[in-house]
Amino acid sequence: MSAKSGLIQPDFRLDGKTALITGASSGLGAHFARLLAGLGAKVVCGARRRDRLDDLVAQIAANGGQAQAVVLDVQDEASVIAAFDAAEAGLGTPSIVIANAGVNEIGLATEISMDAYDAVMSVNVRGVFITAREAARRMIAAGSSERGDGRIVLIASMAGLKPLPGLVPYSVSKAAVVMMARSMAAEWMRKGINVSAICPGYIETEINSDWLNQPGGQKMVSGFPRRRIMDEEALDGAMAWLVSEAGRYASGSVIQIDDGQGL
């Protein structure tokens, strides 16, 4: 960070860093991969759909970046461990990890099956925990305690802060992610690892596109203060800050970026 003309210039560059992102085959995960690659990071793109990951890696390479695809299922501990092994062998130990993979189930609580409830919890809570835990283990083994360069960002949701009828399993899972970020931050503070959560408002992605284009979803959007959903780029500033040297003092942070949708 440098001072120039009395202004502080934040350092968002990630040159020499390796980042691993889950749920990178589409939506926000793919966007985060392109963002971090553009800031200079070597990016490991993890998800279940290999064809889409290969396309993303090709896009990043075409723009001068460096990326690697790893197939993983965040619900499966062995799969996550194997993905980190592949990342270390290919691009080096990730010092930045974004736990982004998530699923949704829409419906009234009285109508949601336990299989559907369990599926949401398995990806959104268990998967985030496994990803963050493995990330921390690798960072600590690689010397994060001395360097203080570990960055873990968990993607939660405004639904984890504001009750949303029809989204009980999703809301519960994202509230758990918020507390997970704060609790892990407290545990790993002296290990040189910052852990924070971003709570986005509605951004159209594969998991909510059908709902947003239904009459119920359109009615919901019309009730937002600005009557709109957000663009993917809405989270760029917060993400770049949290994972870079500029955000070295941010840990346990819960950042809500929702265009006032939760008001």
Rank of each mutant, 00 (worst) to 15 (best):
V120W: 03
I152H: 02
G107C: 10
D115V: 10
V153L: 09
S95Q: 14
F129E: 00
L164Y: 12
N124E: 08
D51P: 04
G92W: 02
A69I: 05
L108G: 14
A116Q: 14
V97S: 04
A159H: 11
G160D: 04
E146D: 14
E134Q: 14
L91N: 00
I155N: 03
N63F: 00
R50K: 15
V120I: 10
G65D: 08
L91R: 07
T110I: 11
P94C: 09
K162I: 13
V168M: 11
A135W: 07
L53V: 13
A67C: 12
L56A: 10
A141I: 10
I98C: 02
M114F: 13
I130S: 06
L161A: 10
A132Y: 04
V153A: 00
R137Y: 12
S144G: 11
R138P: 15
E111Y: 00
A116L: 01
D118T: 13
A156I: 08
R147S: 15
A99E: 04
V97K: 02
I98H: 05
G65C: 13
A109Y: 04
A61S: 14
D76W: 01
R126F: 09
A69L: 12
D76S: 06
G92D: 03
M158D: 04
E77Y: 05
A101M: 09
G160W: 00
V97A: 09
R126P: 02
N124A: 02
